[in-house]
Amino acid sequence: MRSMKFWSLPLAAMALSACGTGDTTSETKIINGTLAPDGGAIEQSTVALASSNGQVFCTGTLIDKRFVVSAGHCLANYRGTLYIGFGRSSTEFKYVKAADYAVNPAYTGSFNKSVPSDISVIELSAAAPAGYNPVAIYKGSITRGSNLALAGFGQTQSGGSGRLYYTSVSVSGTTSNEITVYENGTGSCYGDSGGPAYVSSGGRLLVIGATSRGETGCRGSSIYTNVAYHLNWLRSWTGVNL
């Protein structure tokens, strides 16, 4: 297996740094992706995590009308008021304030080795706006070569939020708690942290992963937290039979 160098900072940290200091990064949305269809299933369930000044720093997935799943590293050190943006870009967002959120207690914060619990959950202060619908969590098995759809909001070089893009990739490896995809020139990057990996099953999109980390350059391998692996924790915290 070839040696891979992964991002040394969490995907969200780079975006937060750009927002907080005025520094900029290169164009870092979903690489070589496609704008999500207006009103489609991807837009209905993929949401943006934003600060009180409207800066998008991570992505999440609506898994219930009142709950969003994202990455642990997105919120582990977050101290501001959190808003969830619904829509394809910050210019059209409908915002719902977060009532509460939690990072999985097993999350270590280390990106030097495996991060098996890089997952968080957010409770909304009100139900998702009309026209936005949750997706179910995929609880089945996934095999090498399976196709997944990735979606997310990336930061632009101006420091503003990007738009919702998606792309298709193949699974290159799995463990009980993580999924590795090979992007081959397309895929997630900084600002897409916590965003969904969707699988199509029975004619529906289901969420299987949440973006954790990726290979330097954003054009190689990325690792996704297997959401179903943390199903008991999610059910316990939300009180919902997800």
Rank of each mutant, 00 (worst) to 15 (best):
F111A: 01
G109W: 02
V115A: 15
T91I: 02
K97N: 06
S114E: 09
K113H: 02
I119E: 04
A98K: 02
T91D: 14
T108C: 04
V103P: 06
K94F: 01
S114N: 10
V96S: 11
V103K: 11
P116H: 11
D100Y: 08
V103N: 04
T91P: 00
Y101C: 07
T91N: 12
S114G: 02
S90C: 01
F93E: 06
S110E: 02
N112E: 15
S90A: 02
N104C: 11
G109R: 11
S114F: 09
D100L: 09
K97Q: 14
I119L: 14
N112Y: 08
T108N: 05
P105V: 08
V103Q: 03
A99P: 02
S89D: 13
A99D: 14
S114K: 10
A102N: 09
Y107A: 13
K113A: 11
V96K: 14
S110R: 03
V103S: 05
D118F: 05
E92G: 13
I119D: 01
A106Q: 14
N112W: 05
V103F: 11
T108L: 09
T108Y: 04
A106P: 00
A99L: 12
S114R: 06
A98F: 08
A106N: 13
Y107H: 12
F111N: 07
S114P: 08
V115M: 08
N112R: 02
E92N: 10
D118S: 11
T91W: 03
S89G: 09
I119N: 03
K113C: 09
D100H: 10
D118L: 05
